[in-house]
Design a protein around this nucleic acid. Structure first.
Lengths: 146, 146
DNA sequence: GATGAATTGTTCGTATTCGAATGACCGGAG
DNA sequence: CTCCGGTCATTCGAATACGAACAATTCATC
């Protein structure tokens, strides 16, 4: 008689799979961030791009994409929505007419402070189940992993 | 004279923000998984839904969505693609004509073993920068967080 | 049995995310 | 100067991901 294989749950646990955990943790933070930043109207992705642009003052679209880990195709859409809202401005480098040079506008600079406050709240809320020590450990391990 | 505000980088570090780290870690695992599972042709999301369906044997679409943390609108598309590939089958419960009852097909059961092997490889590759102890810690902290 | 609330699944719109292809442009090799 | 590889930005298609609206159905209450 043929032996029936052991059930999948005995061979693999989706809930211990790093990809599944990262997806759920990322999802959870995104939901918390969108709630915390509802008044400033920024998504986590848009916030990252805006914050990095403010950090740098002036940056090409392509470099910005690399510094926030976004594909050229992705950063294009994010920058389009941020410029449409008047938070960053697009100019062109006359010495390299391929590039789009980005800089925060006055509105962008004015918004980024409130946005940072929202990001801090989302950070703390998302990490609420962990102690301070655990938070530092988690962040260090994620930084080591990426 | 008005004081100029301190630079953003002194007030906020995107690279220490849990949302940014989770987004990048999730991104990295997804890329690794897609590479490891290229031969079985499953995305991480599709794998999660298929694995959970195999675990349960029979499950409604809505419950499956909750068990893999997917919106009703999201699980609908994932299930549509899995059924189109003949990996899971949709029937209907005559006692509740709202629900769509899902079950793995023979092809789905046959594919899930190879897919689990790919998931294991992706798991190990994504966690390669960490020691065994660090991996356990990271997974435990993520499980505590979500 | 009727009626209103809750559940299930679908569809639409918007926002990431990436691979692939394309066009414009820069730089160096000859 | 010309050609050619590399870079930059854009576009398209496909796959998540979610809010909102909707129809069909079930359930609880009257």
């Amino acid at each position: 008689m043929p032996e029936s294989p052991p059930p999948l749950a005995d061979r693999f646990s989706l809930d211990g799979h790093i990809g599944f955990l990262l997806r759920r943790a990322h999802q959870r933070h995104a939901a918390i961030f969108l709630d915390a930043a509802a008044d400033v109207g920024l998504t986590p992705t848009q916030f990252a791009a805006l914050a990095r642009t403010v950090e740098l003052g002036r940056v090409t679209q392509n470099l910005l994409g690399r510094l926030v880990a976004m594909d050229p195709a992705t950063i294009q859409g994010v920058v389009r929505r941020l410029t449409a809202r008047g938070l960053i401005a697009r100019t062109h480098d006359p010495l390299d007419r391929r590039t789009a040079v980005l800089a925060p506008t006055a509105a962008g600079l004015a918004l980024v402070d409130a946005a940072v406050a929202c990001a801090r709240r989302a950070h703390d809320t998302a990490l609420a189940p962990l102690s301070d020590e655990e938070r530092r450990t988690l962040i260090a391990l994620l930084q080591k992993m990426v």
